[in-house]
C-alpha cells in the first residue's frame, strides 16, 4: 500500500508541530522517520495512523483520501513505544484481540483466532508463550508480542513508534536485524520513528530526516550520509566539523588565506564550511590548506580525534587521524577536507 502525505500541517493549541510536510512512501518500503525530540516525527506517524487529524493537508492510502477515516477504518498496525500490551490478557489474547473485536460477520472462530495467534508467535519466535502475561515477559519479548498483535489484523501499513527505544543495546541490535527479516518476509509497507541515526541508516530503505516540524532531507542511507543537504543534516547525522569561511571569486578563504577549495557556483559572502572529520587529507606543505595548532587529542575506538585551533579567531575543528600517525605528535597540523559542503550564512 502506497502512502502519500500531502502538504500536511498539524497544530497543537496553535503551536505548529508539523509545517507543510509532504512525503511519498512506496508500497513495501521500509521508511525511517529520524529526528531529535520535538522534530514532529511521532506526530507525523500518528497522523498517518489516524490517531491525530491534520490541521491542513491530505493523507492518501493508495489513491484514496484517508484523511477523514478513523483509525479503525484505516487498518494500520501500530506498535507503541511502550508496547501498550493489555496487561490483564495473556499473550495469545493480546495477539487475538484485533480479530476478536471484529464484527460478527467478519470474525474468525475462536479456534481460528487461537491458531492465528500461534502462527504469529512462531513468526516472532516466541512459540510456547501463549499463556504468559505481559508482566512475565522481558522487554524484547514484549516488543515482539506488540508486533505480532499489530500484524494479526493484516494491516495495510505497519507503523512503529520508537520500536527499540526502551531496550538495551544488545537486544536492540538483535531486534533490528530481526525486524528487517520480518519486513522482507511479509512485505508490509513499514514506517518507523527513531531518534537513533544508526538504527535508521542501518535498517531503512529510505530515511526521512526531520527537524522542527519540517522534513530536511529524504534519501537512502548513502545519500543522507554522504550528501547532506542542510547544516542540520550535516550536524545531526554522523560526525561533522564546521568552520566559518568567506567566499571570494569562487575561492574559499579562512581569514586572509585561501584554503585551496573552489566553489564556482556560490556568490561572494560569508559561509560555513562543513566536512566529516575522517574525510580529510593531511598535507605536508601548506600551499592552500587549513592549518591549525593542536589543542587536544583523544583516542576514540580505532582512531585518534584531534582538535585544532584555526587562525586568529581560534575556531576549533576536529579531524580524525589513524592511531599512531606522526601528525598527532606535531604542534601544527595542515589538512584539507576531501569531501565538503558550503552553506551561505543565513540572514
Amino acid at each position: 500500500m502506497e502512502v502519500r502525505v500531502s502538504n500536511v500541517r498539524k497544530e497543537f493549541d496553535r503551536f505548529p508541530a508539523l509545517r507543510d510536510v509532504s512525503l511519498d512512501i512506496r508500497s513495501g518500503e521500509l521508511i525511517a522517520l529520524l529526528g531529535p525530540s520535538g522534530s514532529g516525527k511521532t506526530t507525523l506517524l500518528r497522523l498517518i495512523a489516524g490517531l491525530e487529524r491534520p490541521t491542513r493537508g491530505t493523507i492518501f492510502f493508495g489513491d484514496e483520501d484517508a484523511s477523514n477515516r478513523t483509525i479503525q477504518q484505516r487498518n494500520v498496525g501500530f506498535v507503541f513505544q511502550h508496547y501498550a500490551l493489555f496487561r490483564h490478557m495473556t499473550v495469545a489474547d493480546n495477539i487475538g484481540f484485533g480479530l476478536k473485536v471484529r464484527p460478527a460477520a467478519k470474525r474468525p472462530t475462536r479456534a481460528e483466532i487461537r491458531a492465528r495467534a500461534s502462527e504469529l508467535l512462531d513468526l516472532v519466535q516466541l512459540s510456547g508463550l501463549e499463556k504468559r502475561y505481559p508482566a512475565q515477559l522481558s522487554g524484547g519479548q514484549r516488543q515482539r508480542v506488540a508486533l505480532a498483535r499489530a500484524m494479526a489484523i493484516e494491516p495495510k501499513v505497519l507503523l512503529l513508534d520508537e520500536p527499540f527505544g526502551a531496550l538495551d543495546a544488545q537486544v536492540r541490535r538483535e531486534l533490528r536485524r530481526w525486524l528487517r527479516e520480518i519486513h522482507d518476509a511479509t512485505g508490509h509497507t513499514t514506517i518507523f520513528v527513531t531518534h537513533d541515526q544508526e538504527e535508521a541508516l542501518e535498517l531503512a530503505d529510505r530515511v526521512v530526516v526531520m527537524s522542527q516540524g519540517r522534513i530536511e532531507q529524504i534519501g537512502t542511507a548513502d545519500e543522507v550520509y554522504d550528501t547532506p543537504n542542510s547544516p542540520f543534516v550535516y550536524g545531526f547525522i554522523g560526525e561533522s566539523s564546521s568552520l566559518p569561511v568567506k567566499v571570494e571569486d569562487g575561492q574559499v578563504w579562512i581569514s586572509d588565506r585561501p584554503i585551496g577549495l573552489s566553489t564556482p557556483d556560490l556568490g561572494d559572502g560569508e559561509a560555513t564550511l562543513y566536512f566529516r572529520p575522517h574525510d580529510i587529507e593531511l598535507l605536508d606543505d601548506c600551499n592552500g590548506c587549513i592549518a591549525g595548532t593542536l589543542a587536544a587529542s583523544r583516542r576514540v575506538a580505532g582512531t585518534r580525534r584531534v582538535e585544532l585551533e584555526i587562525g586568529g579567531a581560534r575556531e576549533r575543528v576536529e579531524i580524525e587521524l589513524p592511531v599512531g600517525h606522526p601528525a598527532a605528535q606535531k604542534s601544527r597540523v595542515a589538512f584539507r577536507p576531501k569531501r565538503w559542503k558550503l552553506f551561505p550564512k543565513e540572514g
Binding site: N75, F80, F97, V101
Partner: peptide, 16 residues
C-alpha cells in the same frame, strides 16, 4: 491513553 489507542488501532470500537 496508550492502551485505548492500541485497542482502537486494532479495530475495536469505543464500547469494546
Amino acid at each position: 491513553t496508550g492502551d485505548e489507542e492500541a485497542a482502537l488501532s486494532l479495530g475495536a470500537n469505543g464500547w469494546q
